[in-house]
Amino acid sequence: MNPLDKPPVQLGLALLTVLVLPLVLKSGILATEILIFAMVVAACNLLLGYTGLLSFGQGIFFGIGTYAAGICLTRWSIPVPVVLGGAALLGALTATLVGWLSIRRQGVYFVMLTLAFSQLFYFVAYTFSDLTGGDNGLLGVPRPSVGGTALNTPWAYYTFVAVCFVTVFALLVMVTQSTFGRTLIAIRENEGRAAAIGFPTRLFKIEAFAISGAVTAFSGALHAMLIGVAPLSNIEYHTSELILIMTIIGGSSSLFGSVLGAGFYLLLADALSTVWPRWLLLLGLVLVTVALFLQRGLWGLVERGYDLIFRRGRSIDSETPAKEH
């Protein structure tokens, strides 16, 4: 194992990210958005990288969290911690349902089912506009306040999200290191064998979905508070696609890869969109490059760089590109 994949190192890198972002970025909104999507992408990675499930349903959970925050905070004055907890719970329940129905099929059919659910939930949100605001979304979602002061400046809210991010990231590291996480890897490697040695593999996949859904919805709620709106676009199929693209760019072999993926995408989008309105075209090229030459994503590149600098000559056998997936 590459030393960079060790849990304390991963956690250290996450902490470092939280500290470095304010130093290099002018916009607190962008920095906060990076942390929010880093959580979402890490949750997607739990399914894609660890369990081997390519889910197009992540936008559902993100949207559910967004609406949970939007509805609770604009209609009633429910305390923010309760809203965040409730959003996570609702996300977990929705993900359990979607997961429970989708994992009945494998491969392409599984992917298509998650895609279908994604469309389904989008139209549900679109249709029940009394609750969700339909096309307009829900406006005027307030920021949380800590100790009586509202976190109205971007960097104040960034601090709030940063604490959430580090906590969630640490929890996800714990999950991947647990006997549960290691069983997920076994299921990804060889599901038939995992079942033959006694693991009820479906239950493990559903639980992975639930955890992923909880984190994603939690982040969705934070996002609504960040932009002050609960927009319809958060539950759109496009969001699911965005999350998957970030996950793949970042690399699915480690959790910090997800932070890289989210950061890289959002920073690139921010830079490119100011120079050229058709910037998505360039992003397409980036994705093609990753798919063709960097199958372990940005994280794979980091690992290779580390090996080149610190472990030159030694343990060449740990560098086995044949095992890329």
């Binding site: 996480g181 490697e189 239950l203």
Partner: peptide
């Protein structure tokens, strides 16, 4: 039918854990 990208010991640990799979559901 093995877990090819996991170590031999991890393969056997998983197989041994398979006797108490509910325990492994605790993340």
């Amino acid at each position: 039918s093995l877990f090819p990208n996991l170590s031999l010991r991890e393969n056997l640990r998983l197989a041994a854990q398979g006797r108490t799979p509910w325990q492994a559901l605790a993340p």
